[in-house]
Nucleic acid binder design. Structure first.
Lengths: 195, 195, 195, 195
DNA sequence: TATGAATGAGTATTCATTCAT
DNA sequence: TATGAATGAATACTCATTCAT
């Protein structure tokens, strides 16, 4: 498995740094190679093309991202707690790794539609985690039973994603962790005044 | 005023079409010129450079988009109704103009960070409209009074934006209009079971 | 005769200024038109094309330049005096009009070979003036009678031209007039120690 | 050292030919690449940009030109002989390589002022060679001791340069070598009848 | 595996010139 | 005569990818 080879990871890490620092379009393959300490040609022993580097970056990082969240959630007792945990960990993980946050929220989106479809595939397990919480919440009678799971998941993901993007574009100047509870409350209770 | 000149609008319309059909990166200036029925050089009598075309497209289209929504909302009686109207019109306007939807949801995001900052500026009036609804809802005692307006606005916009993007990426195969009510309900009531 | 029309001269004067200030390649026709206070298209009522403007500038200015020198020389009594007068006036006239000096010594040379042949045609009367002095000097028995007039004229012109070019490139910081006598002495006596 | 790389020299030689044949402005980088038998992009592995090719051509060729003259002169016994040798070799070297003569006398002058300043820097060692002859001649009591070295050098260089340019523009139809002696005589003795 | 020199396709922009008014 | 909006040809340079070593 090529992924166990050290150069593969060197290149992945170099790509995250180079893209975060220079932006997607200024990140030439040769620059990534230099930062990774390998020759330009070596890149092509591990990746098919430049796009493949980007997909692999997302794949590797998202894999870890989702795994940790799935793990964290499994310890929670109900959908409400799981949702909060998911929000907290979503914010926390990206806050902890600003380079990765820049890449996922800004630079990776500067890719063409084909690449975005591949990115969506990689994202699917995360969306499934969200779906599961929704379904579980409904079963637990915490959430309404008339929910359109697909739609609700889009809304939840869109909410979290937009908050992350704003945070990155505001140059990470404020503390996201504090907002997790408000976000959970919004998703669960909405804006209305509770009777 | 250059905006009254017919060629300015011809170029704007051509740009939307060409970008929607070919994607951001395959949209050469010469192709836009051809579609607009003008010479390549004519583009530069009306726009400073290629980026300026893109910004202007967004400016023009978003201007109309926001104006219509602001107008539609003004006829509504309270924040709840206004929110529903905003959601309906947001979905409706982009659904009606698939080319524009593709450009705003997919292609325009493939731009660099500088351009995205300019786009955010153009988007600001729309965000303000959302802010106003939130504030109004609070005053009307329909919405809670402990809301963080900035955060809530991000969540609402993120929700709508993600739904639109999914719809565009799924090739506009389903009817968005039907979902507006569910979305409003989600935003106002959240997921929880009402007592 | 078009040359009596005021706009013709306005354009010529504007061209000298614009070329001297911006350099040959940065001197767009539209800039010359603007400085001359006419529309771009008007230029083409008086000149065939951009090259024609340049040739005409040289023609007009060189015509005056040569006329004055020919006139000044005619008052001198012998070839030696005439040579000195020619040198003095060559230096004086271009020193007095730095814009013209820049155009003739630097910018006009950035033209293609065809244009340079035309420039050489315009220069011919000046070269003839030099030829005449050489021939006269020989007849007066002041200059040797074995001189190759064509070659000697090239040497004299080359000498004056190089001095002017150096003066222009050194940004006209020193006084050329003082050097005329040394130049005349060099041409007449050479470098050798006179017995 | 890049200058030992064969492609560097291939490109230099191709550039001389292409510029001599097509003129400065019609010499596209792609044409030079084609003539040199390399890809367009390869040019940019050896040169920073198009201007850099031109400067390097002049640098390489002038370097050899000056070196040979300096070498030839060193064998001569006094300033008079050295001057003659310099003139002969100046004429000879450029006569032998008409492509180079066209480039140096005509095409390279079609460059902007910045480039000309760089060219002047490259020319400096040649001017110094001339200066040295003047100073030596004075010390040997062959030349007058009141000479303004800078001015005299300009006159000598201008003389040679103008003769070369005329020869190139007359399409190299006559034999320059024969004129070297007359030129030396002019420079040393001037035009006057010797008593 | 690893290298890095070489490749060559691809495109925004300028500006001299025209021509309908 | 005079205008100036419109034209469209023309070109340097980058960078992802290859392949001989």
């Amino acid at each position: 498995m090529k992924k166990n080879k050290p150069k593969y990871n060197q290149i992945i890490e170099a790509a995250v740094e180079v893209i975060a620092e220079n932006g997607y379009h200024a990140s030439q393959v040769s620059r990534i190679a230099k930062k990774a300490g390998v020759a330009d040609g070596t890149i092509y022993l591990y990746f098919n093309n430049k796009e493949d580097i980007l997909i692999s970056v997302f794949e590797e990082k998202m894999g870890q991202f989702i795994e940790k969240i799935a793990c964290g959630i499994s310890k929670m007792n109900n959908a409400e707690e799981k949702l909060l945990k998911l929000i907290q960990m979503h914010f926390h993980q990206l806050s902890e790794d600003p380079h990765l946050a820049i890449v996922t929220q800004l630079e990776l989106r500067q890719s063409n539609t084909d690449l975005r479809l591949k990115i969506n595939q990689i994202l699917k397990p995360y969306l499934t985690v969200i779906d599961d919480i929704i379904v579980e919440g409904t079963k637990e009678n915490i959430f309404r039973d008339d929910l359109n799971v697909l739609l609700v998941r889009q809304m939840i993901f869109g909410t979290l994603d937009e908050i992350m993007t704003n945070w990155v574009m505001k140059e990470q100047k404020y503390n996201l962790a504090q907002e997790a509870l408000q976000v959970q409350s919004f998703i669960i209770n909405g804006l209305s005044v509770r009777e």
